[in-house]
Structures are given as structure tokens and as C-alpha cells.
Simulated scan of single mutants.
Amino acid sequence: MATPLARAEASYLAGRYAEAEAEARSVAAARARPRNDMYAPLALGIAALAAGAQGRHAEAVTTYDALLPVFGKTFGAGHPQTLKLRSDRAQVLTALGRYPEAEALARQALAVHRVPDRFTWSCVSGWPAA
């Protein structure tokens, strides 16, 4: 069964970053009303990932900063989704030359939770691959 993010993920994986970002933002806007909807923050995470892939690293960091507390509340600090978001933020920080901050964030994320080896995770959403 496809998730609401399937088209955004497919576009990202195909290297169509602007299309992925637009689709992800559309999903986020459409699902922003329900308070417990997990797809809205996940969609914004994909939008940030796509913005970074287009070279808009500072914008991506701003989006990640806004999403970190939402992911913590929605999924929990040790959840793989939150870990992935922290990892994505750390990668964008390296693109901005903010290496000490990126390293500290990566170490913090690893200390909080380690992803089990038995799972294969989607490189975009972090959900278990089908």
C-alpha cells in the first residue's frame, strides 16, 4: 500500500528534487489540520531534504530546526524517524561548513538510538522498505 508520500519519495529518488519538494509541501499542507497526523511532518522532512539537494542548505537547516521538536513529540526522541531527521540535519550542516555542530549532532543522535541492522530503511522517508 502506497503512503501519501510515495510520489514525493519517487521524485526524490529519481533526482527530481524540485518536484519532490513541491509534492512534499503539498502533502504537508493537505494534512496540516489533524494534530496526530504523522505524514505532515514527514512530508516537511522530505521537503527539507529536497531543498538541501537543490543547494538551499540554510533553508533546509531552518526547516529541520522547526521539525526537530515536532518529530520528538510525534515519534519520540529515540524513534528512527527522529534519528533520520537529526542525521539529515547534520549532513546539511556539513554542506554549510558547520562541522563541529554537525559532528556533535551526529554523536548525539547515535547516543540516543541505534537503528537495528535487521531493517532496510527507505533513504527518503526512513520507513521500512517494502
Rank of each mutant, 00 (worst) to 15 (best):
E59Q: 15
M1K: 08
L13T: 10
S122L: 09
S122G: 13
E101S: 08
I46D: 07
L49A: 11
K84D: 05
P34F: 04
R16Y: 00
K84W: 00
G78T: 13
L96G: 03
A58K: 10
W127F: 10
Y39T: 01
S11I: 02
T82S: 13
R89T: 11
L67P: 04
S11P: 01
P41L: 00
E23A: 15
W121I: 07
D37I: 00
R118D: 12
R16M: 02
K84S: 08
P4F: 07
A22V: 05
D117K: 14
A2E: 14
P128F: 01
V70A: 04
R107M: 06
T74I: 05
P41I: 00
A8R: 09
R86L: 13
A58C: 06
A129Q: 13
E103C: 00
T63D: 08
L67W: 07
P116G: 10
A51R: 12
Y39H: 12
Q81A: 12
H57G: 03
E59T: 09
L96P: 04
A58S: 11
A109R: 12
L83C: 04
R56H: 13
T74A: 14
A30M: 03
D117N: 12
E23G: 04
A102E: 07
K84A: 08
A18Y: 06
P116T: 00
H79K: 08
Y12H: 15
A29Y: 06
Q108I: 02
S125G: 12
T3Q: 06
P128R: 07
L68H: 11
L85D: 06
Y39E: 08
P69K: 03
A111N: 14
V61S: 04
F71P: 13
R33Y: 10
F119S: 04
P128T: 02
M1P: 11
R33C: 00
S122V: 10
P116F: 06
P34L: 06
A111F: 14
G15M: 02
G52P: 00
T120P: 01
A40L: 09
T94N: 10
A2R: 13
R31P: 09
A102D: 05
R89Q: 15
A40Q: 13
I46R: 11
L93T: 07
R98S: 05
G97L: 07
T120M: 10
R56F: 02
Q54S: 07
A130D: 11
D88L: 14
R118F: 15
R114D: 10
